[in-house]
């Protein structure tokens, strides 16, 4: 990796606490610092409760950090004065539960963002949407409603919806965890193609084999911190941290 590149996302000393109950505070992220570069396909793995999803959700401020800074394209998005909505347009997010808009057709799910936020005409937005529907192989479902689709189809539509905004980075929050096993493959296929097209991707997942195959970086999170980071070969072949070794033993 060249070092003269400017990071797309710079996380500096990020802390996140949740208040639990009346007085208790639970730290879910402590002192996380990490950079992500354009073209990175970074996978974040680790035991449940490690703070992986919270970390991802801090990056587009769906969760607000307790302390620390996150620079996205040079702007500290943790700053309350930042117009976060504008920056979120550049950060696509794919959720575990898909979160398609059930009252809108597949086509409208894709076009409403570009039309309302980027000022595209209906024709322009639909042209763009058709291309993306083709890319996720669902161009024949444009007039369907989300509840008529299978889980795998819903997630592919959700990915296309995010791509319609032409984001600079895509955040995947356990995109296959809510899917029946036979539908995981079709979603991973779409993600693999995205990675091949050099989309910058941050993926929280439990799909270790997929991570090994697609990622250029894998981060291991446990106990509120990133304990180890490496390329896939060394991550799986030569783990250093004891927690990671135990985790990999359990996964395999």
């Amino acid at each position: 990796m060249t070092t003269d590149r400017k990071p797309l996302i710079e996380v500096k000393h990020l802390y996140k606490e949740f208040s639990n109950g009346s007085s208790g505070r639970e730290e879910v992220l402590s002192d996380i610092s990490v950079d992500f570069y354009e073209g990175d396909v970074a996978f974040i793995v680790g035991p449940s409760g490690a703070g992986k999803s919270t970390f991802l959700r801090c990056l587009n401020r769906l969760e607000s950090a307790t302390k620390g800074e996150i620079f996205f394209e040079g702007v500290n998005i943790c700053d309350e004065k930042v117009d976060i909505d504008r920056h979120r347009q550049k950060m696509g997010m794919v959720f575990q539960q898909f979160n398609l808009f059930p009252h809108l057709s597949v086509m409208s799910n894709l076009t409403i963002g570009p039309m309302k936020l980027q000022g595209l005409s209906k024709e322009e937005a639909e042209e763009k949407a058709i291309k993306l529907l083709r890319r996720v192989k669902l161009e024949d479902r444009a007039t369907s409603y989300p509840n008529q689709l299978s889980g795998g189809q819903k997630q592919r539509i959700a990915i296309a919806r995010s791509l319609c905004m032409e984001p600079d980075v895509m955040l995947f929050d356990e995109p296959t965890s809510a899917l029946d096993p036979e539908m995981v493959g079709e979603v991973l296929e779409v993600m693999r193609e995205l990675a091949e097209d050099k989309m910058t991707m941050l993926v929280v997942t439990h799909e270790m084999a997929f991570a090994k195959e697609v990622a250029n970086r894998i981060l291991f999170m446990a106990d509120t911190q990133i304990l180890e980071e490496n390329d896939p070969v060394n991550f799986f072949g030569n783990p250093q941290n004891e927690r990671l070794k135990a985790f990999l033993d359990k996964m395999i």
Binding site: L62, R86, Q89, M93, F95, K116, L117, S162, M165
Partner: peptide
């Protein structure tokens, strides 16, 4: 999740 989906798109 509907609020979050809207927010994540930039609404």
């Amino acid at each position: 999740g509907q609020y979050e989906a809207g927010a994540s798109l930039g609404f």
